[in-house]
Design a protein around this nucleic acid. Sequence first.
DNA 1: CATATATGTCAACAACACTGACTTAATTTT
DNA 2: AAAATTAAGTCAGTGTTGTTGACATATATG
Lengths: 169, 169
Amino acid sequence: MSQSDQESLANDQDDYLSNEELRQALELLFFAYRDFTGEPDVILANDGFGRAHHRVIYFVKCNPGITVNRLLGILKITKQSLSRVLGQLVREDFILQQTDPGDRRRRTLVLTDKGNALESRLTGCQSARIGRAYKAAGVDAVRGFKAVLTQIINADDRARFTGGGPHTD
Amino acid sequence: MSQSDQESLANDQDDYLSNEELRQALELLFFAYRDFTGEPDVILANDGFGRAHHRVIYFVKCNPGITVNRLLGILKITKQSLSRVLGQLVREDFILQQTDPGDRRRRTLVLTDKGNALESRLTGCQSARIGRAYKAAGVDAVRGFKAVLTQIINADDRARFTGGGPHTD
DNA sequence: CATATATGTCAACAACACTGACTTAATTTT
DNA sequence: AAAATTAAGTCAGTGTTGTTGACATATATG
């Protein structure tokens, strides 16, 4: 008996855990993420940027004064990958990078006015999409949406949402 | 008054539509999608494949006999991008491509046994992740999860989920 | 002073998307 | 039957985003 056959039998009792239900979830995530990122990608392309720039701008906005190392921890990419993108954003005056007075090895990052303006445009269209979806689905659905998404996230990053603040350690 | 200030005022009445709530949704989607795709990426790398191969294998599995054009419509990438990935999968015997007898311009795609085996492994770990999340969050949360994700998807693809069958036109 | 940490940089490489131009084969339309 | 359209494939070039590995510099900590 194959693994998937076993799963079918095991899940026959709970139809919300059936293979078909799970398969639908995979597709929902694929299409939702594709469309969720589609609009910002167009805006970014105008400035010669990509999705990676968006992520950096977003997390600097939410964590003003964040250091490069902490940003790497959130994004989980190599410093060489971040460096290319971050360097562009700093050179083109979207992000201000300053030496941390407390520990002069560290560089703190904040958005410039230019960076804030771009961040607003990017997050604006994503927020609008989510807002429309939230409104159409209703407040109870939103609770479920967040509960399931939180559980999908790996345990080590889940605390960022179940706990209190941003928690970027 | 800035755009975001206007939004704040407009949304102060519904706290589930506040800027902070929407911002949290953006992050949930980012982290959930990152971790959702993390495990399959490792498996794919063993075969020298990437996420694009996964998507092709997945949609061929769910739509056996699908044509190249319909696959392009689902993935929304260029035929040159698909060609590279699909060509590899056909050459390495994960996908069987045959001329459609009804319209000999068309090529129909199905997974080989080898392709089915890989698909099971890939979808298996994603299904397991979703299954755990569903079980932990509960059946009511799942209903909300699907309702919100469906609304996030662009209207033209939303019918794939609100309606009956796969509907890949 | 030695070691560890934070950051940056150079080089090479791979996956995956894009545009644009062109070809071949088969079907449909006129 | 000729013309137009559709389905699929190919070649060439480009850009974003990630990777590994090696190395450099400044600062902090032991």
